[in-house]
Write a protein that binds this DNA or RNA. Sequence first.
RNA 1: GCCGGGAUGGCGGAACUGGCAGACGCGCGGGACUCAAAAUCCCGUGAGCUUCGGCUCGUGAGGGUUCGACCCCCUCUCCCGGCACCA
Length: 820
Amino acid sequence: MSRRYDPSEFEPKWQQVWADERIYEASEDAADERPRFYALDMYPYPSGDLHMGHAEAFSGGDVVARYRWMRGDNVLHPVGWDSFGLPAENAAIKRGIDPRAWTDANIEQQARSFRRMGMSFDWTRRLAVHEPEYYRWTQWLFLRFFEKGLAYRKESPVNWCPNDQTVLANEQVIQGACERCGAMVERRNLTQWFFKITDYAQRLLDDEDQLMRWPERVLTMQRNWIGRSEGARVTFTIEETGEEIEVFTTRPDTLWGVTFFVFSVEHPAVERLAKLGGTWGEVEPLIQRSRAASLASREAADTKEGAFLGVHAINPVNGEKVPVYAAPYVLMEYGTGAIMAVPAHDERDFAFARQHGLPVRVVIQPEGSEPIDADAMTAPLQHEGVMVDSGPFDGEPSPASIAKVAAWLEQEGRGEATVNFRLRDWLLSRQRYWGAPIPIVHCPSCGEVPVPDDELPVLLPDDADFQLGGESPLARHPTWKHVRCPSCGGEATRDTDTMDTFVDSSWYLFRYCSPGYEGGPFRREDVDRWMPVGQYTGGVEHAILHLLYTRFFTKVLYDLGMVGFTEPFPRLMNQGQVIYDGASMSKSKGNIVEPMPIVERWGADTMRLIMLFAGPFEDDIDWKLIAGDDPNRRPGVHSWLGRVFAAVGDAVQRGDASPEPDALVRLTHKTIAGVTDDLDRFRFNTAISKLQVLTNEMRTALDAGGSALGAARALVQMLAPFAPFAAEELWRVEFGEPASVHRSSWPSFDPALVVEDTVTMVFQVDGKLRDKAEVPAGIDEAGALERARGSDKVLAAIDGREVVKEIVRVPKLVNFVTKR
RNA sequence: GCCGGGAUGGCGGAACUGGCAGACGCGCGGGACUCAAAAUCCCGUGAGCUUCGGCUCGUGAGGGUUCGACCCCCUCUCCCGGCACCA
């Protein structure tokens, strides 16, 4: 009798068996010859139970891990928790819960849910970054960065979230708002800790070629974020003071068109020069106004406000004197905070010139056009042309001559070719409690003194006051910060900031390789054995955060001699989001669908299959479209598993008493070939489709009285990565196999059964090679030619003159699609 | 504005990267079983025409290359993501 499909009968059973048999533990046996494969999922943040995003991401990651196992790899598939961060502290503030207790409870809940879902994790390597044995090494690594000059403290305008009462990294500010809470971020001048990621900007770009399988959009985002532009630094001189001011320009070829010079209103020289020029009275209100405006809204910054400073700059290429302005449209953070203005060829400079009645001088003449009347221009000229009024460069093509001009500047000592980046240093300090304390002591006589390695970790106090307001919880604590200076023994204070949680997550993947190691954050030989990561799975929201930071960390670790590679994860896979009715799920919209109730109602396998079959893994899934509103409606994939159980049960019962139809045997081999290919390319949805076709064909064969045993066996094995419980039940119970299906070898196919000859005909007309025509074999040559000729029109045109030059038979993987 | 990715039935999506467009599934329609419902199974399901054999049109729009184009090239429209007064 066919088996009925009832996952509640066996899912908890196999979950227990897998744990008892410890089949998902990576082997560290030196004699184990299998290739190693590191299947990594972005570790979760423990803010409650698992949500749909987790179910989607981890279902995909688990397919990869299980598939690699079956392909014969020794797989490392660990799990841990990103357990420091603001939500724990907010729970403490709002509800008076201890952040540690809140965090630990959520981790336990998520761990239970992961087990219930049957994730193939190696639980022996579990970690959580809030545990002192972890953050001890986060602190240790910080000190290595500090020693190298890669962690430093400076005062600068930073992003301050008034709601969360902490500073944020640039990467955590989205459209001027706090990434976490959405509050508009303020600019404040504060002394903060930074990592010198800018030192690695070029390497982060260069090593892109090691990122063999990264989604194009993520590469684009990182490229945009790093924002490399080539140009030149040019030195102007302030006539009244003789001081030299550098500017960065991408268009040194327009230097002869400079008609004024502009400082950012935040530039430190502005006040001094305006006072000198006698214009401080007009400049000061502008500075005040623009400071307020840039905070309020970005749109407000559209105006081309500005004020003359009363001084002049000398253009190094022609000695001309041009007026110097201060204006908010020049950014202090980019380049040098001062620009040369070329209104004829730059939109912003043009708008400024028109508003302030400044001259416009054309120095790039568009090819073949009449001389331009600068006064009549309504827009700057930004196309190719010929340099004019440009001294030694008259007649040179532009912008083709940029490099030439830059070389000339360098030779003349008036500037140099250079590269400028948009990327800023990573601001890592946070004025919050729930993070790894920065292991630095501030001593009145010794300055910034690192906490000695053997005194790590610097533990968080258990009795902090979390209420917002005033200083951060660590600063407010009555005793915690007071220590002796490790260097001179005098009275000193601890740094009271904690580290951004992205510091924790920049090295957790290394720690998995050396669980519990006490001699350092990890052993180099462990890391070099498992890494780089074979496949990394997680959300695209970390494109410029975690993914960029971890790449930076890896390069620093490489430079420190701690690892033997420079890219941590050359293969990346981003799952799409799970949304509802076109919108992201959120509490306020009341449209949240939880994964665990679905697991309870329909089983873990169904939960996974819904996700994996919905569409391409990297595309968003609209839950309403694929699963509808009614949680009691039976999901299609659940019905399919029902058909699988029935068909496999029948196939086993019939055994090989009757012959297995040739067509089914061929389809089985085609399916193996196709599913293998799909899995290698992470095309889970199409792989599942192929398994469904095989199931349907098995049913047909069985109903016709044939056997389907071979197909059934292969089907169950191929099902294993997608529906691990169902596959295990069928494998061990129906087939009576003693060992797990997840430890069986991936089925192989006979190439002879999955290729068919195609005939390629190369023919020529009137002695000229025309083209190739490729047609499936089985059609005779005359038929192939006829087909190659196509329409009557073409037949008439070439009839009688074409010569078949060669006929090549090429075996080709057959199209999987089967017509019924 | 710049960079990147897209557009295929009522819906999610296939189509071996140039070779029978719409696989697989959802939904819907019809039928079987049933006192009835659920579940299950069978048939149908791009559009239009049809003498029921088929025929014509059809992958965002328009051109091109090709015997042959969802796929390659050019132009355009719209959608999504990122960056953006970045000099």
